[in-house]
Amino acid sequence: MTPGTVLVLPVDGLGEVTAGDDLAALLVAAPGSPRLEDGDVLVVTSKVVSKAEGRHSDLPKEAVVTAETDRVLATRADTRIVRTRHGLVLAGAGVDASNTAAGTTLALPLDPDASAVRLREALLDLTGRNVAVVVSDTAGRAWREGQTDIAIGVAGLQVLDEHAGRDDGYGNVLAVTAPAVADEIAAAGDLVKGKLSRRPAAVVRGLAARVLPPGEHGPGARALVRAESHDMFGLGAREAVLAALTADAASVRGFGAPATARVVAHHLGVLVDGEVLVAGGAPATVDVPLPSVDERALGRLEARLTAAAFALGWRAGSGTDPDRLSFVEATQ
């Protein structure tokens, strides 16, 4: 192969996979399976992994989605965008009712990274070849139509290509660029797998430099899951408003890490059109002087201040001065 060339090869003839099947053996024995080479990356859809692991259910789909949900991010009509037990953000928790027996659904593997490790080790035993494994699933993207495949389980692969600290060739030092290699490979594999071809696996060849030695499985796809404290889009727009107005500040999720006292003071100061005081110490407090207005207007203002503080990760404190409201971080 010419250096820099990447080939994506289909795995044909796998046939139906059922609970308890040896998926590695089926993949190797498939009549249309390319002979594996050291440094290949096998991309396999989560659906056949779930089938082999017996993740079927005959419960109603909505019940399975609820069981697989850590929390709901957004709901529109019958669609629920949720954070799963794995930390993935997917429509319907990735629960699938297609390409499975009528009346049943398939949930994602319990631990997709562990599934990838088991499959990688089995392939090494069967073929003697050192390959990486990517377990893929379909996901939508915020702000864009359509779906693409992403990596939800990985073994034996560098999942991120960290560019931070590198020079871009023009003398600019890169700070945050980190291509999600495992997701790119999952998407490439889907170009030959397809959704209707009953072809659930592909081999990506030409990326041997990114494949780890036998026995070294890497951080897995969990390394691609952004921590909730760093998430700027942890709730849908409607849900964020409703949460700020109705939720318990002690259990806030979806708004990211608490804002700094200075940021809170700025936003609350805009609401009262005046100066807001920040007091240091442990915990720091933000004190909001209240204007002299009638009781009804004051109640509305206090409600707006409390909702804004909640959205910023703060809650009402224990201040006793009737002329001001005090706020502290919700984690305090």
Rank of each mutant, 00 (worst) to 15 (best):
E228V: 10
L90D: 10
A102Q: 11
D190S: 15
E216L: 14
E16C: 01
D113P: 14
V89C: 10
V131Q: 09
R199Q: 15
L123I: 10
A261P: 05
A74C: 08
L90M: 11
H267G: 00
D22F: 03
A24V: 12
R324N: 04
G165T: 07
V154W: 01
A237P: 03
T69E: 08
G194W: 15
L27Y: 10
G32A: 10
P291S: 02
L26C: 13
L235K: 09
V159A: 15
F327C: 01
Q147S: 11
D248F: 04
P219N: 07
A259C: 08
S229P: 00
G94E: 06
H266V: 11
D111Y: 06
H266A: 11
T84S: 07
A91T: 06
R76V: 14
L277P: 00
G171W: 02
T84D: 05
T100S: 02
A187D: 15
A25F: 08
G87Q: 03
V241Q: 13
A178P: 11
R315M: 05
P213F: 07
L90K: 08
H217W: 07
A279M: 07
L106R: 00
L298V: 05
E295G: 00
A201M: 09
N99G: 03
A186G: 06
H230P: 00
F327D: 02
R253K: 04
A25S: 14
G319W: 08
S318G: 09
R35V: 15
G317S: 05
R129M: 12
T2W: 05
G313I: 03
S326C: 12
E16D: 13
F327W: 09
D321A: 05
G146I: 12
T148M: 07
T75Y: 02
L196S: 15
E295F: 01
F310H: 13
V48L: 11
G153T: 07
E216I: 13
K61V: 15
A30T: 08
A30I: 12
A116H: 10
A142Y: 12
